[in-house]
């Protein structure tokens, strides 16, 4: 079983991202479960979303405390909360940032990867320049870093789960897939 934790801010679409990822994973033939942090969401406040993936039906209904990997939709969160909390050894930390992975230092044995999802989202006019919607772009990088679904699965999931600018969202996911920087 693989457990992922997504970090974002309220209103950034982390929950939608987790749902689209779950859909892509299901389309790829695996079993999946996605859920938000249970509670009240406030715009701008740090929020979490979680995804569980397995080859067999998922019975576990408790929360995720020790994720295998974390995905950070908003790099400014790294300053304010401990994004590595409970993260398993050798886990991937995938960050939406224009900086290379070597610019991020975390205590522990983790694999940092980055993708400039913000630039890609702005390029495809997803959201506004001031607050671009990065969730589909970052998902392109997620499935490259953690191969739980194919790009075709993700494209299908975006078509089903995104109400507007479907082509642009797909293009953003593809570009992010190609531009993931895996670090050393």
């Amino acid at each position: 079983m693989l457990e992922l934790r997504l970090h974002g801010r309220g209103g950034q679409g982390s929950v939608v991202a987790s749902k689209i990822l779950a859909d892509a994973v299901m389309k790829g033939g695996k079993f999946v479960q996605a859920f938000p942090e249970f509670g009240v969401e406030r715009r701008g406040a740090p929020v979490f979303a979680f995804v569980r993936i397995d080859d067999k039906p998922i019975l576990l209904k408790s929360k995720i405390y020790t994720p295998d990997h974390v995905i950070v939709l908003d790099p400014t969160l790294i300053e304010s909360i401990n994004i590595t909390e409970g993260l398993k050894d050798n886990g991937i930390i995938l960050i939406n940032s224009e900086l290379p992975p070597s610019e991020f230092k975390f205590e522990g044995n983790y694999r940092v990867m980055t993708v400039d999802a913000k630039r890609i989202a702005i390029k495809y006019r997803l959201g506004s320049k001031a607050s671009p919607i990065v969730n589909t772009a970052i998902l392109g990088a997620v499935i490259k870093a953690i191969p739980v679904a194919t790009m075709d699965n993700l494209i299908e999931a975006i078509k089903d789960g995104v109400p507007v600018k479907i082509e642009e969202n797909i293009a953003a996911a593809k570009e992010a897939y190609e531009s993931l920087i895996k670090g050393e």
Partner: peptide
């Protein structure tokens, strides 16, 4: 059904 554990959890 359970709040959040089912109501807000996505499953196939």
């Amino acid at each position: 059904l359970d709040a959040f554990v089912l109501s807000h959890t996505y499953e196939p």
